[in-house]
């Protein structure tokens, strides 16, 4: 429901995973398989010399240090900033506006999502079938969508629960004069487990 970039999440996990697989597999095969071990030993010296040569060929002014090190530092800082942005971007997408409609030439009508949320909460909150309920509004594809999550008492039929919420949503459609897309999330969870079973049929 939120605007988390799931593809980015999976891409990060995949890239880190592949990196670990490659590094780990390289170390393990080099340690265990003699032919790979020999090849590693033969090239190790050349690789080391080459890198040290690069470090000497790339002086930064007359300070005597290579600019490769500061460049690596800049790359690390940029990567850290990108990762912090990536973390902060998770789980966003709430909105405070349910309806924006240019009702006349002179202005627009804006209905805050709190109106819809409180109305639905009022209608659903007192029902004996539910232990808890919560209504929030998210933006999905630039459209405000209501999210109504209810925790059912044990034994309540999900169909009945959905019907109760849906009646309230339809009544809200009448109140607002236009339908809002809505998600109903029916969950059990700890609070459902410790409360009494439903006595309704």
């Amino acid at each position: 429901m939120n605007s988390t970039n799931r593809a980015a999440n999976r891409l990060l996990i995949l890239v880190v995973g592949l990196l670990l697989v490659v590094v780990g597999a390289a170390a393990a095969t080099a340690a265990l398989i003699p032919s790979v071990q020999d090849a590693w030993r033969n090239t190790a010296g050349a690789v080391r010399d080459q890198v040290f040569a690069w470090l000497q060929q790339t002086p930064l002014g007359d300070t005597g240090v290579s600019w490769i090190m500061p460049a690596l530092l800049v790359i690390a800082v940029v990567a850290v900033i990108l990762l912090i942005v990536f973390i902060v971007r998770q789980g966003r997408g709430h909105t405070g506006i349910a309806v924006t409609e240019p009702t006349s030439e002179h202005g627009t009508t804006v209905i805050e999502s709190a109106v819809a949320e409180h109305a639905l909460q009022d209608a659903i909150g007192s029902r004996p079938e539910f232990v808890a309920s919560h209504v929030s509004t998210y933006r999905v594809k630039r459209t405000p969508v209501l999210k109504i999550s209810v925790t059912c008492r044990r034994g309540v039929s999900p169909k009945d629960a959905a019907a109760i919420v849906e009646d309230a949503v339809r009544a809200l459609d009448l109140l607002l004069g236009r339908p809002l897309p809505a998600l109903v999330q029916i969950s059990g969870g700890f609070r459902a487990r410790v409360t009494s079973t439903t006595r309704l049929q």
């Binding site: 039929s157 959905a162 949503v169 029916i186 459902a192």
Partner: peptide, 22 residues
């Protein structure tokens, strides 16, 4: 869960407890 007006997602444990009662 099939619905006309909304999208309804149900936790498996809610389905299970309703089935257990029936």
């Amino acid at each position: 869960l099939m619905s006309e007006r909304t999208v309804v997602v149900v936790d498996n444990e809610v389905i299970a407890s309703a089935l257990a009662r029936h």
